[in-house]
Design a protein around this nucleic acid. Structure first.
Lengths: 269, 269
DNA sequence: CAATCTTTGTGCACGCGTTCACAAAGGCAT
DNA sequence: ATGCCTTTGTGAACGCGTGCACAAAGATTG
């Protein structure tokens, strides 16, 4: 997965642990699938398997919601779907705006599942005047100048930022000033926002780098491990540390141009 | 951020805590920016601010790498960039394949930052025969039949799945069988993979749902809190629990069709 | 109606991650 | 050369999250 929440640990939301909240959508998805197959009840064991988690963890998670299971039987699928949906606030309508209609923004706009769970794309906004009026996903792109008006008129509280990194902070400030209090940020930047505003980040680059780290480890254990691996197992970083010249730096790394700092996680224009 | 890692807690990679690994790309980005501005050194305080974390946490993170800071001065930017890059395995070339060239897959293929940090798109793969040969991001899309050959010929170990949810599991199995050991999954499904394979998931829908949860809480605290909030503060779930009829279920929630279970986080086709 | 069997709900312990706070280290000025 | 001032590196405490393991609860069967 992507990176975790930024800023504002949100301590503990009304008694429901953050970790549990993050899993509820997972359970909901699995439950919805069961519901469509008209399965009446599920045991924690089955559902946990479907969601890819530990059954004890799942039971504990549900216990925070008030646990409506029946011992010896399991959980009522329909009822749980309702409970979780309500807890997540999915029983109401959430208008969202997408700012930055580049490659990624357009892809997001076309995302079908967007509308399904209570989320509705209220507007597509882009700073490029040439984009204004162009239909994307059956909806005309509007110019950034309209941002404030759109937010207020539609009562938007959730904004999606898919702009280049350079514009993200400013866009977030405008969104927040206009009333947005939750932001999903696809731009590769750390947004600094005031207290009370939630930001979640999705960053392809970071995900790949984390995978690369583990990938390198796997490879290192196999063959290359013997390369320079003098058993200096200080439990520390890596064996190569002793090989690297304390001054032989960035040559192989410091890449020219903008490494990726100026475009959102996904973006061409 | 998106959702966290799936399966395989990867215990603790060679002494570097997983949480630290997840932050290294963040530091690297901030350091790269400093490097481009030719800033020679940074203090943990400054860098931490740029990366949006606590300075003590940053220092501890760096201490796992072997800490190359100078007391009273700070860290050498260039050197740190190199160290982190090496630690993340970014000094080598990582060929990746993107499977599922729909809206999202295409957007990912066009992602500029992809190539910059050592990641190189080796191939674009799609199951639709009509897509075969079509150029996307200046590269011809290849048919799924070629998948195994492509993986092996290019020594690909990282795969990106951007297919509909229904195809994801099968695609992952083929990728893994062909030699892929790290997967970045954009499809809204839980992939079950064998030991040793790393999977990270990016799921727009889940992110939005988590934001909605917090958004609802914020709104609830303000006005609606008084609605049915009899001080039944059991520390449990929510006040509304007492309001919901124990049998009045899914009506408002169980949406028809496929809620979003069949398309990747972003995707039209 | 009683016994049995299944499955929930949770007390408890453990480990990771975060944060504080401070001693050690090193540069720099005098 | 000596002392001051800054900043690192880390010991220790704390809190969250996870998972085990089991008692309580209820359905089901005879």
């Amino acid at each position: 997965m992507a990176t975790g929440r930024t800023h504002r640990p949100a301590t503990r939301s009304r008694g429901i642990p953050e970790a549990t909240v993050a899993r509820l959508p997972l359970y909901l998805r699995a439950l919805t699938a069961l519901s469509e197959r008209s399965v009446p009840t599920v045991s924690s064991e089955e559902l946990a398997a479907a969601a890819g988690v530990n059954s004890a963890k799942l039971r504990k998670d549900f216990s925070y919601l008030g646990s409506y299971g029946t011992r010896g039987v399991g959980y009522d699928v329909e009822y749980l779907v309702y409970q979780i949906s309500r807890e997540l606030g999915l029983t109401q309508d959430w208008p969202v705006v997408i700012v930055g209609i580049g490659n990624l923004g357009a892809a997001l706009a076309n995302y079908g599942g967007f509308a399904s769970r209570g989320f509705r794309v209220a507007a597509l906004i882009d700073a490029d005047p040439a984009m204004a009026g162009k239909p994307v996903a059956g909806m005309p792109v509007q110019h950034t100048d309209e941002l404030e008006k759109i937010i207020e008129d539609n009562g938007v509280s959730i904004g999606v930022i898919a702009t280049p990194a350079g514009a993200a902070q400013q866009v977030s400030e405008r969104l927040i000033a206009a009333g947005v209090t939750s932001i999903l940020n696809f731009a590769p930047t750390v947004l600094s926002v005031p207290e009370g505003v939630d930001v979640r980040k999705v960053d392809l680059s970071i995900e790949l780098q984390i995978l690369a780290f583990h990938e390198q480890r796997k490879a290192g254990e196999g063959a290359a491990a013997a390369a320079a691996a003098e058993a200096s197992s200080v439990g520390g970083a890596a064996p190569a540390a002793a090989v690297v010249p304390p001054a032989g730096r960035a040559a192989a790394v410091a890449r020219k141009g903008n490494p990726e700092g100026d475009v959102p996680a996904v973006m061409p224009a």
